[in-house]
Design a protein around this nucleic acid. Structure first.
Lengths: 201, 201
DNA sequence: CCAGCCTGCTACTTGGCAGTAGTCTTTCAA
DNA sequence: TTGAAAGACTACTGCCAAGTAGCAGGCTGG
């Protein structure tokens, strides 16, 4: 119970930090700003995070982990390579859009992370690329995909989805799920497969 | 001649600023750092740029203009929509990779730009999206492209190419031109057109 | 050879913000 | 009811970097 309250406070700090870092940037936001928004003072934050930089890492890392999980789960799942790629892209897109602010902050503020935190995250990103490339190779081997250069294709796919953090508006024309589906369809087309008409959700 | 020297000095400052902002980030770089690298002192920079923020804008804006030009020229050029799209994507990719550091700095440090500079750049970006969407619509009208949602497709294409600034290594496996060609091929596939086998350079 | 201007430098000021030392208050247990 | 401990606040420190005022030295035109 005590633990839970501690975790809750931590979570609230992170929420507010995400909002402000997203809106004004990491260096454009002071810890006093975050504290004020929460109705507390700066030392309060320091009882939960060692430094501003640690706060940054704490709001990037889990989101990158979620991205990796999305790809890993889909890649290891059921179905043909095309079905698995569709699932992987749609689920990854969902993480990107649901954690839009966290993703944006990570890509913008990478240079402000500590070397250790960045190294850990980069390990995750390498795994992400390897999994995606492998999935593409599986599809090529199965005769489902036509790809000139698997590595470039993996980077292009990853980029196409990641980029959505820059343009998606939650209150916009398309619902989040529709955007994910559309992007996954485009992804399949890119690798020379026809999108499954009635696949997944 | 006096003008030319002034322009040259300005250019050198920009070069060094790009290098350092790219490596250490905007706030992680001091004007003293840039001056030191050039073998001059901080007031020297202030005779050529009003402020650090103006320096940032001066190194972002022209690059965004080049991106827009690449798309605009290709879109208005000769050939079928598929040929023009191929050209547009390849040329845009070339700008992204040749000005990799400038592009990276712009996307990372957007929040540090002045409101005016950002507004100007955003106007350019809107034009970019409109041109690309229009080109896609032309292709659909001509029966060359199959696209479920033109706007999402335009954003996906733009993102796939833009993203290359995050992963391209000039000294890597593929030459810059090859990367551009590969990406343009993937782009055409994404919109349901077959890449021209022997198109452009 | 000299006057004055242009260019860049030395040597500041200033403000802002991360991080901290030490106090006060509130809560809970005995 | 009291004592102790946890948790949060007030009120700092110290540093760092943007931006500036005013000087010096060399080039140019007379």
């Amino acid at each position: 119970m005590r633990e839970e309250i501690l975790a809750y406070k931590r979570e609230r700090i992170l929420q507010e930090a995400v909002t402000l870092f997203y809106k004004r940037g990491f260096t454009g936001t002071t810890l006093d700003d975050i504290a004020a928004e929460l109705g507390v003072t700066k030392p309060f934050i320091y009882t939960h995070f060692r430094s501003k930089v640690e706060l940054l890492a704490a709001l990037c890392q889990p989101t990158i982990e979620m991205s990796l999980d999305a790809i890993a789960t889909a890649a290891a799942g059921e179905g043909t390579p095309a079905q698995r790629l569709f699932r992987a892209m749609a689920d990854f897109a969902q993480v990107v859009l649901q954690r839009q602010a966290n993703i944006a902050i990570f890509f913008r503020e990478e240079k402000n992370l500590s070397d250790e935190a960045l190294a850990e995250i980069n390990t995750l990103r390498k795994k992400f690329d390897r999994l995606l490339s492998q999935l593409l190779r599986d599809g090529v081997a199965a005769g489902e995909f036509q790809i000139a250069d698997v590595n470039v294709a993996a980077l292009a796919l990853g980029g196409m989805i990641s980029w959505a953090y820059t343009w998606h508006r939650p209150e916009g024309r398309l619902a989040l799920e529709d955007v994910c589906t559309r992007l996954a369809e485009l992804a399949l087309r890119m690798v020379g497969a026809t999108p499954p008409v009635s696949a997944s959700v």
